[in-house]
Design a protein around this nucleic acid. Structure first.
Lengths: 336, 336
DNA sequence: CTGAAAGCGCTTACAG
DNA sequence: CTGAAAGCGCTTACAG
């Protein structure tokens, strides 16, 4: 039974109920101007009695924007992104903001454009773009116009002229690969994933850093993959077939899970025959057999900082501290 | 450098630019009334030139609501929920709606209440509440007032007087346990999770169904857990220590992953010593060694249907078809 | 500290 | 098919 939604009470109803003028109600609502305590009480009582609730659209119309921020992301299922979104939401909620997320394939540029158009039909305060560089940034920037934008980058594109929180992928990768190398392997193989504009992913750069620091002449050729599980399994099978492979560094934990499975299918033992390590510290890492060696990256911190950058609240930023990153050695790699 | 955001062009600017009246611009915008083709063209050109973009708040003010739907959920990281949210977003975007998700612990009733208040400050069209029954539904309903609400239920609470999409947990659980039983185990153990109002979770009911159908006198005592990984590992260790345990049905795949790990740590082989099965068909299920036997539940379908119920678009509902559910036998359970 | 008035950007009857 | 006018619910100077 479709219930007829009763007309919501307005500020005028409250004013009448409380026997005050309309602006007075507004003042107790916003706290912009002092109101005599007893007047305030009368108004508050009236609001309660009427179940008054401010109309965000009306308020937005006069203020120019709504307490809503948009999040644009390629997909929300992948671990790091899921965490960042939850973190942004949590932080936003703490300051009375709503977050609306829109998901799309960055390669579908007209799809992205349409979705952004829907988003911008709302006078939102700004957007956080995850994986900013996967998008057609020129189009995105021009479409967003003057709307504030923040993102999380991995340290390489830090020159990007949008506000960004930095997660140092390169250093993380380097630490993992160094650990792998300490295990006595001759070299470390890498599974490469596509990165924007033909650039080299910073995790790959970190791998190269560590390999060359170890005095290894040339890093072995990379095995191509994308972020999908299918592709990871395939890449893993390819590496498993190569007897030269004794250690594999994967660009994230989910890919590493697939690789470990492929190693198993090919009869290669992890870590006895080949060490495997990932990056992120996915919660399930410890449930695998063997459990996965990885590098914890503090995506929760990154999400929070991205939100704060959007609000450009400098003191909040100072309070958000340092990310809790660090190497986590488990069973999938040989002990030093 | 904080760029001064230029004043957005309004419908009035467009009207002037196109040399027509204000309502005419509105008409080409909404398509509510026919407009002479050449007039329309002039207006469209003007909009393009001015980079005009409608102001959603103003529109919402007169229309009474914004094309935004809210999603309230206990947490978004768990697999089934992540999928549903992504699916709702996808479906919503297809019809020009934005979705804003707010996450909270259902037990923190004042926290939920505050968050809902923020949500309702926007004139949204309705909300999808995931895990509806975990909340204080009386409070939630009264707070939501006449706002449309939809949810996804597991078949037990189908009498709930809110619109709901049904995923038949009980049947799924029953199918998994029957499969386990066919493997020749004497009985099947279950890890129980808390459920609203002291009720028995439908997955537990399905387990009981299958066990009693198999002519087993009494189902073994359940092992208590919650949805966390830590708790799953603990429950798994407890079961591993019991030599009577030869098959375990877990209330979801993530718990099953933990249980498999605990079995391994206790030296019990899966599936040779004990079979393990879950429910959901988490994408990582196939990467475990052994890969996990489970039951695929179509959460993508559920999310889509929940959105459509909210819009009460009956034809859309007919078009969304049936869920793609089904048993998936992998390596963690004994072959029949 | 409080009221009367204007205005935020749009849509919708109401007249032509 | 198109214009002039009113109104959606709120906030903000402007006066007292």
């Amino acid at each position: 039974m479709p219930s007829v939604r009763a007309r919501q009470p307005t500020i005028a109803d409250v004013a009448q109920e409380a026997g005050v003028s309309l602006p007075t109600v507004s003042r107790v609502l916003t706290g912009s101007t002092p109101v005599r305590p007893e007047t305030r009480e009368r108004v508050e009582l009236a609001m309660k009695r009427l179940h008054y609730r401010p109309n965000g659209a009306a308020r937005a119309l006069v203020k120019g924007s709504q307490p809503i921020i948009g999040v644009i992301a390629p997909d929300t299922a992948a671990y790091a992104r899921a965490i960042m979104i939850a973190s942004i939401e949590e932080r936003a909620r703490a300051s009375g903001h709503l977050v609306t997320v829109t998901i799309h394939n960055p390669l579908d540029s007209s799809g992205v454009s349409a979705a952004v158009e829907v988003l911008l039909a709302q006078p939102i305060v700004g957007v956080v773009v995850l994986d900013y560089n996967s998008y057609d940034t020129v189009q995105l920037r021009s479409q967003l116009g003057g709307i504030p934008i923040a993102t999380v980058t991995n340290g390489v594109d830090s020159d990007a002229d949008v506000a960004h929180a930095v997660i140092d992928d390169r250093a993380a990768a380097r630490a993992v690969v160094r650990h792998l190398l300490r295990g006595g392997t001759r070299t470390v193989h890498y599974i490469s994933v596509p990165y924007w504009g033909e650039r080299t992913h910073p995790r790959e750069l970190g791998w190269r850093d560590a390999v060359s620091e170890a005095g290894i002449e040339a890093p072995p050729p990379v095995t191509a993959s994308d972020w999908s599980l299918e592709s990871a399994l395939r890449a893993g099978a390819e590496l498993a077939a190569n007897p030269q492979v004794t250690a594999v560094f994967c660009p994230n934990d989910e890919i590493a899970f697939g690789v470990m499975r492929s190693m198993h299918d090919a009869g290669r033992r992890v870590p006895d025959d080949v060490s495997v390590a990932g990056i992120d510290d996915h919660p399930l890492s410890r449930t695998y057999v063997p459990s996965l060696t990885t590098f914890r990256l503090d995506w929760r911190w990154a999400g929070r900082v991205a939100f704060e950058l959007l609000m450009s609240s400098t003191d909040a930023l100072q309070r958000s501290g340092k990310p809790d990153n660090g190497l986590i050695v488990r069973e999938s790699s040989l002990a030093t």
